[in-house]
């Protein structure tokens, strides 16, 4: 193993994460406890699911800004289908996830069939889907779910928060797909050179369509988990989550220009952000200080990895 391949972004990030964990647990003895770390896992699941799907999207050189709005729309529909239309809750949740997935599919259609750049297309649907959520909900919340529903967002399975299992499974499956399957290779190929990918006979449009649909699906699943965690629905749920997810993906070393990135990196980026948010708060730093620090870490981490990489190629 040469030095160059060793100093990959993920390794660098892992070192940074360990360093952060060490410093933070030295600052507060309540930080590095199993209970606290598992609880942090609970809090980062929704962003995590979205970020994992976003890794694929960004690796193709695209972006999906509408995920927060899809989350809001799915959350609202879960409640409305169940309460107002009288559909049984499991069916309501599945139907709402189907609509959320469909919203992602519509993004994909606009991007692939109409050749609208992803940023513009999803910027427009960000407004549209949020608007639909507001319109459907008429600004009302749906509350009073049955107890079993809260297992998903507030319960535990084998001592670990339920949704953390979902996140783990999603991360492993996604990592395998991206690294070892034809689909993953097509994703990278589109990101590095779309023209070449098309000439090599890869299904560029089909893959992109599938990825945006998957992004919608991830946001929709995150929505149901979110509803279960906070036990209510609101049309403003998930606003701004797209920036959190993109921050995690980019911090994780996925190139915004496409062609490079791993799920492992995204998960590391996610953990680093969550550890900073939680650890700094426990160490007595206020929320606004934490926001600033995360901004600085984002820039410095990407800067450092850019410098390492350049020195490696010399």
């Amino acid at each position: 193993m040469t030095l160059r391949s060793f100093i990959r972004h993920e390794t660098f990030l892992a070192i940074l994460l360990v360093l952060a964990l060490f410093v933070l647990s030295w600052q507060s003895d309540r930080f590095f406890t199993v209970a606290n770390l598992l609880n942090q896992g609970r809090l980062m699941t929704e962003t995590g699911l979205i970020a994992i799907a976003m890794t694929f999207v960004i690796a193709t050189g695209g972006i999906d800004l509408s995920v927060g709005s899809i989350l809001g729309l799915t959350a609202i529909l879960t409640g409305v289908f169940w309460k107002n239309l009288g559909v049984p809750l499991p069916a309501a949740a599945v139907a709402a996830i189907a609509v959320g997935t469909f919203a992602g599919y519509v993004n994909g259609l606009i991007i692939t069939r109409f050749r609208v750049p992803a940023l513009i297309a999803t910027l427009a649907t960000l407004a549209l889907y949020r608007g639909l959520a507001e319109g459907v909900s008429q600004a009302r919340s749906v509350r009073g779910y049955p107890d079993w529903f809260y297992v998903l967002g507030q319960g535990e399975v084998l001592g670990v928060p339920t949704q953390l299992w979902i996140l783990l499974i999603a991360a492993v499956v996604a990592a395998v797909i991206l690294a070892y399957t034809r689909w993953g290779r097509t994703t990278y190929a589109i990101g590095s050179n779309e023209v070449a990918a098309r000439f090599s006979g890869l299904s560029v449009e089909g893959t992109k369509l599938a990825l945006y649909t998957m992004s919608g699906f991830a946001a929709a699943v995150a929505a149901v988990i979110f509803v279960s965690r906070v036990s209510t629905t609101r049309s403003d749920m998930g606003s701004g989550i797209e920036l959190d997810a993109i921050t995690a993906v980019v911090l994780g070393g996925t190139s915004i220009f496409g062609g490079r990135g791993t799920v492992l990196g995204t998960v590391l980026g996610l953990c680093l952000i969550q550890a900073l948010k939680n650890g700094l708060s426990l160490a007595g730093v206020k929320g606004d200080g934490t926001i600033m620090l995360i901004g600085i870490v984002l820039i410095l981490a990407v800067l450092a990895s850019a410098i390492f990489e350049r020195s490696g190629t010399r």
Binding site: V80, V99, F102, A103, V106, L109, I110, L132, Q138
Partner: peptide, 20 residues
Amino acid sequence: MHKIVLSALLALSFSTSLSH
């Protein structure tokens, strides 16, 4: 095609909101 899709989405949402 997408217009049908969008109008379907809209119609769906309108219909659900009427029940409020």
